[in-house]
Nucleic acid binder design. Structure first.
Lengths: 196, 196
DNA sequence: CTCATCATGTAAGGAGTTACATGATTGG
DNA sequence: CCAATCATGTAACTCCTTACATGATGAG
């Protein structure tokens, strides 16, 4: 149920089309929430039918059509309600830790490959998070700049600080995963070549 | 697609019924993979139809029925293939970090409540993970003891070490979430009562 | 005889994935 | 005129959640 709030969060900056939103999801917001186009278009229509957003239909050339979505007051309220309400935590479901728990059943080389891939995956994520932190500090993230433009001066510091806070949390999680997997590799080596 | 491998991981220790499995999922394995009964029973039937497990039907009293599931050689192979193959990482989707990224839109008190709940949630998880680590060290986890009984001596150390490794990783993730949310609380306080 | 536990499921729906499908516009 | 990008979707399917539904056994 968070998809619609992610959409509202982006649309609050200014009206956008499904296509625009889709691109945002593969960039900035995609770091905290990912959604493919096939999920975005139907959700926007559903939100429109519930009055959270309104579509402004624009002609593109002769036959083309573009739907610009605006947040309605009801949508703004729904977003604030979500922000101010409790968050439900899903149950734990993590393939990497599931596999780690039974790693004695894997070939040592497969265990190493798994941990190497885990490190590579989280190093890639970490690089993205750190890059994003750089963009926040340099005010060079276009989305953040647009957001600050529509934000009253008194809230700008908060906006920036919470972005930083979020990405620092993500970066630390990534560093934790990397450190864990590195210790795992050392463990595999120790158990595969028992010290004489 | 990991549910079946979680089921196979437990069944490899010894045959069990859907009911037994369901209880394991709410205890030990549930820490790395959760599944409700309504998902377990159908999945077991599907796995049986694919030859990964075999149901041994047992009478319970006069009319009662109990299906004890065994892992077949094909199931054992499927489990090993999964253990030795690549893991696919899902895209990032985290309601807590999504909310954190837009926390300037929440009331300061709601932000505090959110972070307090985040801390409480992860403190609960941490307590469970640390409890599990204690059970691993004391060899007082019944599931682990059963697993060690069917494990050749040469693999027992590995079995224990990888369990430790898994739960240490989970505990550290929980500690990271707690530390992050604590910093968030300090940030909310600083931004809500700006230092004069 | 009653209650906790054992035991097995179905149904409806939401959320997410992957693949498919189409066409318009703009810049080179 | 051709390719990149803009633009909008549908369909089929898997996975997961929540709620519903039923009944047997064993211990006290």
């Amino acid at each position: 149920m968070s998809l619609r709030y992610a959409l509202l969060a982006i649309l609050r900056v200014g009206p956008q089309s499904g296509y625009d939103l889709q691109k945002q999801f593969s960039l900035s917001v995609g770091h905290v929430w990912h959604a493919p186009d096939s999920q975005i278009y139907p959700e926007l229509r559903k939100m429109a039918s519930e009055g959270l957003v309104e579509a402004e239909e624009q002609a593109r050339g002769e036959r083309g059509l573009r739907r610009l979505y605006h947040v309605t007051p009801a949508g703004e309220q729904a977003f604030r309600d979500w922000m101010n309400g409790p968050l439900d935590y899903q149950r734990f479901r993590d393939p990497a830790h599931l596999r780690a728990a039974y790693l004695e059943s894997a070939e040592p080389d497969a265990a190493r490959t798994f941990l190497r891939a885990h490190i590579a995956h989280w190093e890639g994520e970490l690089a993205q998070f750190e890059g994003e932190l750089g963009h926040i500090d340099a005010l060079s993230n276009p989305m953040l700049v647009r957001r600050l433009e529509v934000t009253p001066e008194s809230e700008r510091e908060r906006t920036i600080e919470y972005k930083r806070f979020t990405y620092e949390g993500l970066a630390e999680r990534a560093r934790g995963e990397i450190a864990w997997a590195r210790r795992g590799r050392a463990l595999v080596d120790r158990l595969d070549h028992p010290a004489s």
